[in-house]
Design a protein around this nucleic acid. Structure first.
Lengths: 193, 193, 193, 193
DNA sequence: TATGAATGAGTTTTCATTCAT
DNA sequence: AATGAATGAAAACTCATTCAT
């Protein structure tokens, strides 16, 4: 559909420059359509942005869901889920940047909340399943889920900004080890430098 | 001094709406001066923003330095430093919001890097001192320092956005426990719910 | 074309008030378009001005070239060329005023130089052809060409400012007589009052 | 007097950048006084400009009057008067530039008229004296006086803008020869290249 | 008399949105 | 559906003028 193509272009340009610094013209020319045409599909710049974010989130969730389907057990599922969230972006920097920019401007707060809540719910569900299955002792799973998300975000941002030399794989391993240790599941030294 | 008053107002409005969504007029009327007066003290909107961020960072660092002066030992110093960074903001939300918005727009990347690097260097120095003093086994201190920062940021953001019911004290305790466990220093169950 | 209409309006207002005293709003409303529309055709006020000057010069040169085509001989060609430059403006006062203002503001010096140099080169070429054809004795043709231009400019300015009662035809005749006398070509008394 | 010092500074800066491009701040700092102090001596920027122009004109006229006092006869007086008007400026470029800028902006038209009319009246009086004394045949003295002024102005402008390699003395000689020839007083070849 | 901080109207420029074609 | 020219409100910034000290 046409909407999809526009959104793909929007993700690219919003991701590169952020919401405020991206003009509707930028989006239109990235999508190779006339500026006026945009307004046939969307009511405002805001709406384009919102839809682009939603699309980006959906893409991530779809991939995460696919990759997790084949594995079971808290350990494995955590490991895969974290890896997805660090590796996924390697060739999708603009998509990730888009998500990063979300919510830094008051107007988009609600969107961020959705994104973050979704991520948190996802990890929490994994941990709770583990708890239910007796794999985990009851702990502060809520806080651990947030900690995982926070670390993933930090590592990804640093990589985007070239502030780190670590690979996504190294980051994922580090975060996974960290999480397992918190859950009392680590059987090895967590130093996965 | 006049510059200081202007910056205090700037922190308030930039923190509330972010850089792009805040107009120079907004800053001026928050400072209760005419728009032109701003330009007697600063050359551009960009410069106001930069100075505001710098001032915010300086305030935080000053407080952190004061509170840490009296304590020694990795454990104590970590605990205090994390607490400062979570509690400090309670009555300074706009200041914190300002720091959060930093760097989300491409143009201010360099500033964020400074802010983050400063925080990281700070925690790393605490950890390294501990290592040197023989209190810690050699570990991936760099990654742990980042993890601490990431968690602090996450908790603070959630509190700002009313997405959590936890108090700063609870968050600080949780993060400290996490960190100590990573460092192999926890002698108790880390569940500081 | 739209650009042309805008330039026509620009010539009118710039000619009336000069570059600095004319606002972009003035140009826009003279052209009966919105201010923003101007920026679809030009990048800046400076550019509008530059284009307006160029257009004015081009118009003059085109007319001069047309009128001179049919005549030959230094005497005739001088006479026609001077006449063109004095009569041309009768119904194009704003165009002329524009040319007059050019270069009075430091920033536009280069443009004036072009305009003046073109005029000088033009008259010099006529004189040199005459010299080559043996119609003229070798003299300080360069200085004479400048003198012609200076006198034309002076007469035109005085007429613009209503400081003279003379007609363009009278001025042209006077200047031509002056020039011919300088060139040693006058066979009559130069008093063409 | 204080006014005089301010005007001297004003001549300098207005001459360098023109009326519009010169700020009141520029004038104040050139005069080494505070901006507010200017308004104790002048009511507006316009008034400063007007006074500066008037002062420049007065200086020129005073010098011209001094130098002409000792000579008599049309020939000599013309020669001296033209020389004064070309040589005078060598060390007073900003003063001259100021006079050049005058009247290019509608608001200052009246001033230009004064300046030009004064110059014209001056030369006309020389010519008329010559006519009265029987040194000259009746001719179009009015037009000749204007032509002299026009040529002087042209030569001076070109020198200011470095468009000519001629010295003021060469220009003065050329213009004088030109004038004498027009008046039927030239006994030599006018080629004073 | 002298100052210079403060003002705010005015300037150029941008850009999301509309609408005739 | 599609275009892109046109709009005009709003933005950042300037500067002649004022006024409390």
């Amino acid at each position: 559909m046409r909407r999809q193509e526009i959104l793909a272009a929007a993700i690219k340009v919003f991701g590169k420059k952020g919401f405020a610094a991206t003009s509707v013209d930028d989006v239109a020319s990235a999508a190779k359509i006339a500026k006026g045409t945009l307004y046939l599909y969307f009511d405002s710049k805001e709406e384009i942005y919102a839809a682009a974010v939603q699309m980006a989130v959906a893409q991530l969730q779809k991939l995460a869901a696919e990759r997790i389907r084949s594995v079971s057990g808290v350990r494995e599922r955590l490991s895969i889920s974290i890896a997805v969230r660090t590796e996924f972006w390697q060739d999708k920097q603009s998509l990730y940047r888009l998500l990063l920019t979300v919510g830094r401007e008051t107007q988009h707060k609600r969107q961020t909340h959705e994104v973050m809540r979704a991520g948190h719910a996802y990890f929490l569900s994994i941990l709770k399943e583990g708890e239910a299955a007796g794999e985990l002792e009851p702990r502060d799973l809520d806080a651990i889920a947030w900690a995982i998300l926070d670390m993933i975000r930090g590592c990804n941002e640093r990589r985007m900004d070239h502030l780190t030399a670590r690979t996504p794989q190294q980051d994922a391993a580090r975060i996974t080890a960290f999480a397992l240790q918190q859950l009392g599941l680590s059987d090895e030294r967590p130093d996965t430098r």
